[in-house]
Design a binder for these strands. Structure first.
Length: 871
RNA sequence: GGACGGUUAGCUCAGCUGGUAGAGCAUUCGCUUGACGUGCGAAGGGUCAGGGAUUCGAGUUCCUUACCGUCCACCA
């Protein structure tokens, strides 16, 4: 057996192991009619992106599930890919260009797109390589990109068929416009931020000179686009003015006073300026009263429309207009307020609501089915509370604005006829207008929202719209794993798209996790500079440590703070496993992995516990309680296996009895191997590395079978050995308290009712409790003068340590213990006296209390005996 | 305004279907115990935010209050 280093070095292992897995081809999922498929599609990270801890969280969960299912005999497919990320990517490339003093318009669409593809080819693989460092067992042969031909085909099919069904339409609506990204956004892409602002009260004079209306607004510059002032038709202050007109300050336009419910009598002055082109409510008011629309901002947020303010930036225009209003006596007052301002989720600039011609998906009919499948439980959110989040959103969803004024993305497949104006929408690129046959047609320049293609991801990646073998076998997928922050963006849209296009749910479960935050609980972001690079963490502590840190210590759906120090604890855990394995290997002379015929009590103890562990871990995994499963493994490995079992085998391993030696090796090897298998989904690298070095069957741990419970290895009697452990702990505690050095080995008498287990474990007791000669008896020794007496509930222990006993201290301690035992006994007795308890509580609970009384009674007797012994 | 989450040991967090609270880190004491000091042994530390209800029994279920946080809607 080769000599292993004392300290586990993840760096020298991880890439080597990953290469081995790749060469083995085990990431690839074959369609196998003998197996049950288990499919996860990755939430595709942005091509331009770099791995951050959020990805690490998401990928680790998926990898644990997929590795566990793969080992459990499923045809487990984890389908990877990346997203073209329209705005994000285009912005990056434009930034590059800007450094050369160029804009995308200088290059033109075609040249610009070439540049973006170059960019994609250059950086697109970075994130994929980073995923590999985490250990992700994706089927790289099936890797996809949201802009590849197959996805493009799916997008095209989707658009055309929705259009044909009347579920996609073009219309002039108020949309959210980002003047910085110069594109329309969907409602979901707007983030509302509370900001300080002002409420400017402005005088709008009645045209007939009989007075004025006081209008309050947070956005005075938009008065350029006003086409009315609304008052509530019930408002006694103003209703007589309805039908009259006011003269718009600074502009001089004569605009009507209209009566509309939208004006709230309680709010502000009760008079609302109506700017149909720049406010969604005003837009509706405008339609109801047939008001003209005055667009006063262009795509870059500059004033337009033939005013003296034309060309000014919106913020500058606000300042100048306020100043002008004040100078001309129109400004009545300024009231500071806090209000919510919509910002772009990509660039965080203020979003401008404006009326614009855009493409929309009609949501109502699609939402219906999407609501049903979640309400009926065909799709289940885990934790369940997120289904409420989803349903609330879906119930009130508005039409989805899908056109973007960008170049990078799926171009909208609509051709306009220059002659008759007809729109041709087809699956193949047309060369003429389908209505008038004119060749003079041009394509819509806009592209689709990135999420339009992401929405198809679970099936477009498997070949849809083609009825491919993969689609038939692997679809619907099983679990979708993602953060709660993209339920609306992505999960919701995949659900209605899946239902509409494949008539099936795209996935059966949605496993939602929280966000990873910095140690202060703040969101990690590039701009705040508080991001932690997972690659650095992996370099420092190893991928397994990072994975284990992320999986444990947080409950499903909750955010978690990331402390690098916690990785240190997990790195130590990896090291612990490493050294435990090193110990097993050092002592190994056998070459097969079979249990021995003869099992000692401690063997049954560890094997029985292992067997329960297998059951518990599997159950936790089935319930997606990955953190609980991981914690149980941690405890078993460190505590039961390393701190106890390994120590318990040392006597046999170093002894002369060859058979005992071999038996110990066998149980050690068996248990270690099962541990590695159980732990592999969580810590794939170190477990594989060790497994390869141990006697094994099969090529790799990652494709070895996951352990299952074995009736024959349950060993309920193994728990008896727990008594011995209790005794060792009690002796150690006493020794530590009395500062007995380890080389002091007093003789020990164990008095217990059941002597067999202690009789058989004398060598172990002596070794682990550092005692000398041991006597086991069923009654107290005759002469106990000057002995330290220790009581457990199953045994009384007498140690010859008289010279170390401080009688007073010892009496105090015993009295304290006695008082505690008596109060516990009393408590149990009271419970049992309660007739309601005995009649209503389950039998095992009642029995436990009865048993406790017996134990406490024995303990009390033991303690009293000890006290009297002190004299 | 609506919904949701959190409030448990000094810190960060677990605690599944109700049966007298756990981990990691930190702290204290001891240890060259032939796998591991990235370690071993021992110890201290919590009226599980407050109040009420259900129950034989509540950190765990229900109601309520407070504080922190998140999302959605509205805010002319």
């Amino acid at each position: 057996m080769k000599e292993l280093p004392k300290i586990y070095d993840p760096k020298s292992v991880e890439s080597k192991i990953y290469d081995m897995w790749m060469k083995g081809g085990w990431f690839h999922a074959e369609r196998d009619p003998e197996k049950t498929p288990f499919t996860i599609v990755i939430p595709p990270p942005n091509v331009t992106g770099q791995l951050h801890l959020g990805h690490a969280f998401d990928e680790t969960i998926q990898d644990v599930l997929i590795r566990w299912k793969r080992m459990s005999g499923y045809a487990a497919l984890w389908l990877p890919g990346v997203d073209h990320a329209g705005i994000a990517t285009q912005i990056k490339v434009e930034e590059e260009l800007r450094k050369q003093g160029l804009t995308r318009f200088d290059l033109g669409r075609e040249k610009f797109l070439e540049k973006v593809w170059d960019w994609k080819n250059r950086y697109g693989n970075r994130i994929v390589e980073q995923l590999k460092t985490l250990g992700s067992s994706c089927d790289w042969d099936r890797q996809r990109f949201t802009m590849d031909d197959q996805c493009a085909k799916a997008v095209r099919e989707t658009f055309v068929s929705l259009y044909e069904k009347g579920l996609i339409y073009k219309g002039k609506r108020i949309i959210n416009w980002c003047p910085n990204c110069t594109t329309a956004l969907s409602d979901a892409e707007v983030e509302y931020v509370e900001k300080d602002g002002n409420f400017w009260h402005i005088r709008y004079p009645l045209t007939d000179g009989t007075g004025y209306l006081e209008v309050a607004t947070t956005r005075p510059e938009t008065l350029l686009g006003d086409s009315a002032v609304a008052v509530n038709p019930e408002d006694p202050r103003y209703k007589h003015l309805i039908g009259k007109t006011v003269t718009l300050p600074l502009v001089g336009r004569e605009i009507p006073i209209v009566g509309d419910e939208h004006a709230d009598m309680e709010f502000g002055t009760g008079c609302v300026k109506i700017t149909p082109c720049h406010d969604p409510n005003d837009f509706e008011v405008g339609l109801r009263h047939d008001l003209p629309q005055y667009l006063m901002l262009d795509g870059e947020g500059k004033v337009t429309g033939g005013y003296k303010y034309d060309g000014m930036d919106r913020y500058e225009a606000r300042k100048v207009i306020v100043k002008d209003l004040e100078e001309q006596g129109y400004l009545l007052s300024v009231e500071p307020i806090k209000h919510n301002v919509g910002t772009c989720y990509r660039c965080h600039n203020d979003v401008e609501p404006l009326a614009s011609d855009q493409w929309f998906v009609k949501m109502e009919p699609l939402a219906k089915e999407a609501i049903r499948v979640v309400e009926d439980g065909e799709i289940q959110f885990i934790p369940d509370r997120f289904s409420k989040t989803y349903l609330n959103w879906m119930h009130s969803v508005r039409d989805w604005c899908i056109s973007r004024q960008l170049w990078w993305g799926h171009q909208i497949p609509v051709w306009y006829c220059d002659d008759c104006g007809h729109m041709t929408v087809t699956r193949e690129d047309p060369c003429e207008c389908e209505k008038c046959r004119s060749k003079r047609i041009h394509r819509d320049p806009d592209v689709l929202d990135t999420w339009f293609s992401s929405a198809l991801w679970p099936f477009s990646t498997l070949g849809w719209p083609e009825e491919t073998e993969d689609l038939k076998y692997f679809y619907p997928t099983d679990v979708l794993v993602t953060g709660y922050d993209i339920i609306f963006f992505w999960v919701a849209r995949m659900i209605f798209s899946g239902m509409e296009h494949t008539k099936q749910v795209p996935f059966r479960k949605v496993l939602i996790h929280g966000l990873i935050r910095d140690p202060q609980g703040k969101k990690m972001s590039k701009s705040a500079g508080n991001g932690v690079d997972p690659i650095e963490v992996i370099n420092t502590y190893g991928a397994d440590a990072l994975r284990f840190n992320i999986i444990t210590g947080n409950s499903p759906g909750n955010d978690m703070r990331f402390f690098p120090e916690r990785c240190e604890a997990m790195r130590n855990f990896a090291n612990k496993i490493w050294n435990a394995s090193r110990f097993v290997m050092m002592n190994l002379t056998i070459e097969d992995n079979r249990l021995p015929q003869k099992l000692e009590p401690e063997d049954k103890w560890i094997l029985g516990r292992l067997n329960s562990l297998i059951g518990e871990v599997t159950e936790n995994l089935e319930r997606y309680e990955l953190g609980v499963a991981a914690t149980k493994l941690y405890d078993f490995i460190w505590d039961s296996f390393c701190d106890w079992y390994i120590e318990l085998t040392k006597a046999r391993l170093t002894g002369d009895d060859e058979e005992a030696k071999e038996n110990a090796q066998r149980v050690l090897l068996y248990t270690l191997t099962r541990i590695l298998e159980l732990l592999h989904p969580f810590m794939p690298f170190i477990t594989e590395e060790i497994w390869q070095a141990l006697p094994h069957e099969g090529e790799a741990l990652m494709v070895a079978p996951y352990p299952t419970q074995q009736e024959a290895l349950a060993f309920p009697e193994g728990e008896e050995f727990g008594q011995v452990i209790e005794v060792i702990k009690a002796i150690r505690a006493r020794r530590a308290e009395m500062n007995v050095p380890a080389n002091k080995r007093p003789s020990l008498t164990v008095a217990a009712e059941d002597t067999a287990i202690f009789q058989g474990s004398r060598a172990l007791l002596s070794r682990l409790a550092y005692t000398g000669e041991i006597t086991v008896t069923d009654k107290a020794p005759a002469d106990t003068q000057g002995m330290v007496v220790i009581a457990t509930d199953k045994a009384r222990l007498y140690m010859a340590l008289s010279e170390l006993v401080d009688l007073d201290k010892e009496r105090q301690r015993l009295e304290k213990e006695l008082a505690k035992a008596e109060s516990e006994k009393a408590r149990s007795e009271n419970m049992l006296k309660n007739e309601k308890f005995t009649s209503r509580a389950p039998k095992n609970v009642v029995d436990a209390e009865k048993d406790k009384i017996l134990r406490m009674t024995a303990l009390i007797e033991n303690l009293k005996h000890s006290l009297s012994n002190l004299g």
